[in-house]
Write a protein that binds this DNA or RNA. Structure first.
Lengths: 245, 245
DNA sequence: CGCACGCTTGAACATGCTCAAAGAACGTGG
DNA sequence: CCACGTTCTTTGAGCATGTTCAAGCGTGCG
């Protein structure tokens, strides 16, 4: 295992499980983590119905979580960026309820749950942090519910972009300029809109000078105006508006 | 404290925190629980922005969780029935992000979080169950996201009714006939629809013989057909389709 | 009894969807 | 390295679903 691939030297530590843990404790956690070779676009971390093995943490790249509805359509439930935990919803019934596929070349840590659970009894701050991350996930999901219940396409897309923005920001990346790793179709599925509506809304935002968009490349020009359209849910003051972390 | 108001004799135990705990452990948990006098319609358990004190469990009645958007409108994020935990999203940042108001006369247990956290280090099954309940909440919220992203009003209302149905069922109440404690306006806000659309959709369902509805009283006649309209998200096999538990 | 509120229903309008087509980027294979 | 086909994105036009505005009705409460 290479040096940069250890919890102790990982830049995502402040967002991840080791928060509040001593070096020795972090070492213990590190020893149970599996680090697979990078996944490529289209690869799956796991599939809907698979037996729950553990939690995944994205370290680079991004993934989508989706299920197939009875019409055979792919319904996207969330996107995950580096530092975000995947599979938390499978703890209680020991089965992954969604499939998770990779959107671009992506690395992830796999944390076997039974071993993680053993560690939590030894390491109180690990237990605490795991609970905090679960709680945060609940918070983010509630926010997403609020976004989707707000009707207009503009509101939804604006909230989506602001969410990405703040999530990039909390990872020390640019909050104003970033690449969308997901297609228009995937954004549409996630936001409950038609592809054409997403595309048109992007164009309208650009005409209004709210942003510049060129395929995957997005540059937010007027965060204020976007925030006026979207994000009304009471989110945390400092960590922005993650929406499905 | 009256006898029926103890965890040891509470009928909701199989859904609540004491799952898997010994009698002695349950007793410990019971000793930290506050049981307030019943709340009445319009009362608040807490308000958006209040400092996080603890988790609430509804024991009878029902409540809504909502926030006020910048247009001054009430946006409903969830409804909670007996046995469901409230405030889980506030663990990580120690502030309630929504207000919770009572829809009808309601009793609730208040579990102070700092004391609960102390107990979790002593009682492994409490820690495990708390994590399971958090995980379940994440699962339910993801399901709600899926419901709201699915476009049509019929799908949303059908999913909503099926959710209530399965939640009543898991509480040993009738899955087919129940009272809506929330108004049409509140259902509309939750589902991201206009009141009129909710009302019309109820009427259409009734015309189609899917259900009988008379103000708050609902009787589901054709669960199959309703399920064909709604609930496509991969939910647990046995516990039905809770949507915001 | 009367008023207010919540629910229902109707009609016109608007937003977003569907269908259709064309242009731009990407990957493959020659 | 270029040609080609495929896929993704954008844009347009007509249509459908749901919203808005308005009015009427039933229920419950003072």
């Amino acid at each position: 295992m290479k040096d940069q691939l250890r919890c102790q030297s990982c830049g995502l530590t402040p967002l991840c499980l080791p928060v509040g843990m001593s070096e020795a404790e972090t070492e213990k956690l590190d020893s149970i983590v599996h680090r697979n070779t990078p996944f490529h676009k289209g690869d799956h971390l796991f599939r809907q119905g698979d037996k729950f093995k553990g939690i995944y943490v994205i370290t680079s790249g991004s993934v989508k979580s989706y299920y197939i509805n009875k019409h055979g359509e792919e319904c996207i439930v969330g996107f995950y960026l580096p530092g975000e935990l995947i599979g938390l919803d499978a703890i209680h019934n020991r089965v992954y309820s969604c499939s998770v596929a990779v959107l671009e070349t992506t690395s992830a840590c796999e944390v076997p749950f039974s071993q993680l659970q053993n560690l939590t009894s030894e390491i109180p701050s690990l237990q605490h942090q795991l609970m905090c991350l679960l709680s945060k996930e609940v918070h983010n999901d509630c926010e997403m519910v609020a976004i989707l219940a707000s009707h207009s396409a503009e509101e939804r897309l604006a909230s989506f972009l602001l969410s990405l923005s703040s999530r990039y920001k909390s990872r020390s990346l640019s909050a104003l300029e970033f690449n969308l790793s997901m297609s228009r179709t995937e954004i549409a599925s996630f936001l409950g809109l038609a592809v054409e509506t997403v595309s048109r809304t992007f164009s309208r935002f650009q005409e209004q000078g709210l942003l510049e968009v060129n395929r995957k490349q997005v540059k937010l020009l007027d965060i204020e105006a976007l925030a006026d359209l979207g994000g009304q849910y009471p989110h945390e003051l400092n960590s922005g508006i993650p929406l499905n972390g």
